[in-house]
């Protein structure tokens, strides 16, 4: 009589590239790693808001390895031009890749067109860059804030966000992304109001972000806020709860 051999337990290293979405269909079902989502692997959140003749964008500073905190100065917001800022919450490795990709593409645009890219154009650049990878996406949900030059030369607030395959969402009030997105939606919907000046907008976006990330295990550990006005960019780093 033959005894049934016990299946050896295979230890699976939870590397992002072993995410089910990235694995070939033939990858053995019983050793496929199963975690909720690759979007929660490193954590992090970004929000952008429109004010009166100004915009703001803010993010937390946490970098994690699932529940384990790794860094409290991992910046997710990058200047694309003097008046476009891009937030990249999601998989940290893709934050670096996309930051460099967009730096390259914005530079190429500047050289070819001999002018600075406008926020709306940049939003479409982001969208098409992500859609190029429709069936093997970067795990990033970009949020951008900028001041768009109008026909009369004035600067109009512009914010936008996309999902990880580049579906554009242009909102008139605020956009959010990251692991704390549902919390950000809730607080922002309660605190935001139209036509806030730069200082009030700063207070509103800061309160929204801090209170949202305090209820999110994957976001927090400090924050940074950018407020863009027609003549200056104000950057402030916020102290937040460290638990």
């Amino acid at each position: 009589m033959e005894e049934a051999l016990e299946q050896p337990q295979l230890r699976v290293f939870l590397h992002p590239l072993l995410h089910p979405a990235l694995l070939p269909v033939s990858y053995p079902r019983d050793i496929r790693p199963t975690w909720s989502s690759i979007m929660e692997y490193n954590g992090g959140s970004v929000i952008a808001m429109v004010g009166k003749d100004c915009v703001a964008i803010a993010s937390d500073l946490r970098l994690g390895n699932q529940a384990l905190g790794i860094s409290s100065n991992f910046t997710k917001i990058f200047p694309m031009t003097n008046r476009i800022f891009l937030g990249l919450p999601g998989l940290a490795t893709d934050v670096t890749t996309l930051k460099e990709t967009f730096r390259y593409r914005v530079n190429m645009y500047t050289i070819k067109e001999e002018r600075e890219i406008e926020p709306e154009t940049f939003a479409h650049l982001v969208s098409s860059t992500l859609y190029e990878r429709r069936f093997g996406p970067y795990f990033i949900e970009p949020v951008m804030a900028g001041l768009q030059k109008a026909a009369d030369g004035s600067l109009k607030p512009y914010i936008a966000a996309t999902d990880l395959i580049g579906c554009l969402n242009f909102a008139k009030d605020f956009v959010v992304a990251g692991t704390a997105s549902s919390k950000l939606f809730g607080v922002a919907e309660g605190l935001w109001e139209p036509d806030l000046g730069p200082e009030d907008l700063f207070e509103t976006i800061s309160q929204t972000l801090l209170n949202a990330v305090d209820r999110d295990a994957y976001s927090g550990w400090g924050a940074e806020v950018y407020v863009l006005t027609k003549d200056k960019v104000i950057k402030r780093t916020l102290k937040g709860r460290m638990d």
Partner: peptide, 15 residues
């Protein structure tokens, strides 16, 4: 998840 952080801010004056 939408309401509780708003309440933290407005009732407990968090942050």
């Amino acid at each position: 998840s939408l309401v509780q952080p708003f309440l933290d801010n407005q009732i407990y004056f968090k942050n």
